[in-house]
């Protein structure tokens, strides 16, 4: 038997018959069915178990908040306060902490390439895919009770609305009004829980437009680039607070990532 096959044709052939849908919704559905997220999860598992750094150990004993090495539900309960560092940390910040403490790596070395490209995803990206995958289906419950968690939320909220930079932009310039779009892209009003929930609960994610797996810290970084601001530092209090604000706004939503996005 000899068959000539193409991914689009196959996806369609086995899709349930759908009622009339917008072409964009149809595109989103097809993208979802062909998400190569699992490849990044596989690479992440390898990175998690790889012995490296001056201490030549893996990250397997990294405590992401649920105890050393516990992955189940870890992502869904971040960002949260960590007693050992006395600060609120999101997944990527915590991973960096483990690379520095467990593996003995320097900040410079561990953050040299936090954002990868289509040819080569970064260690942080594949680790995020692997770890977030262990929270699939669990409600997002970032920490909200500790004083520093409350402070992080407050700071994140202020940053969200703070206008600055050459173009006077805040996050709300694009994500503050309903039913607006940039070019053809819809702009979610991210400080509204009902809007934030499905979006925040799907990061980190594979972006079809550039075939890359991307993390929350990258999302923040790339927004500030387009806001014509200087560059936020990876894992800084400002970035963790902003991620915390968005995650608390989305809290309660079952985690549905790592997902696929435009």
């Amino acid at each position: 038997m000899r068959t000539v096959i193409g991914s689009a044709a196959l996806a369609l052939a086995f899709a349930p018959a759908l009622a009339q849908q917008s072409p964009y919704a149809e595109y989103q559905r097809m993208a979802r069915e062909s998400a190569p997220v699992e490849l990044f999860e596989l690479a992440g598992e390898e990175a998690w178990k790889k012995k490296q750094g001056p201490k030549n150990v893996s990250l397997e004993q990294c405590d992401l908040g649920q105890g050393p090495g516990v992955l189940k539900g870890a992502y869904a309960s971040l960002p949260r306060y960590f007693k050992d560092t006395d600060r609120v940390m999101d997944l990527e910040t915590r991973l960096l902490h483990c690379m520095m403490t467990l593996q003995g790596r320097s900040r410079e070395e561990a953050t040299k390439r936090v954002f990868g490209n289509a040819d080569n995803a970064s260690e942080m990206e594949v680790l995020s895919a692997y770890i977030a995958g262990h929270s699939h289906g669990m409600p997002m419950r970032p920490g909200t009770s500790h004083a520093k968690e409350k402070a992080a939320y407050q700071l994140g909220q202020k940053l969200f609305f703070h206008r600055a930079g050459s173009w006077d932009f805040s996050c709300a310039s694009c994500h503050g009004e309903e039913d607006k779009r940039i070019r053809m892209s819809g702009l979610p009003v991210l400080y509204k829980p009902q809007v934030a929930r499905p979006l925040i609960a799907t990061w980190p994610a594979y972006r079809v437009s550039n075939s890359q797996f991307k993390t929350m810290q990258w999302r923040m970084n790339d927004c500030y680039r387009q806001m014509r601001m200087p560059e936020p530092m990876f894992g800084s209090e400002a970035m963790v607070s902003l991620v915390h604000f968005l995650t608390v706004t989305a809290q309660g939503e079952p985690y549905r990532g790592p997902a696929i996005k435009r």
């Binding site: 096959i5 193409g6 991914s7 196959l10 996806a11 086995f14 069915e33 062909s34 998400a35 190569p36 490849l39 289509a118 079809v208 075939s211």
Partner: peptide
């Protein structure tokens, strides 16, 4: 076919 292809059959 796009990067990192997924096939199902």
């Amino acid at each position: 076919v796009s990067r990192n292809p997924v096939f199902s059959f």
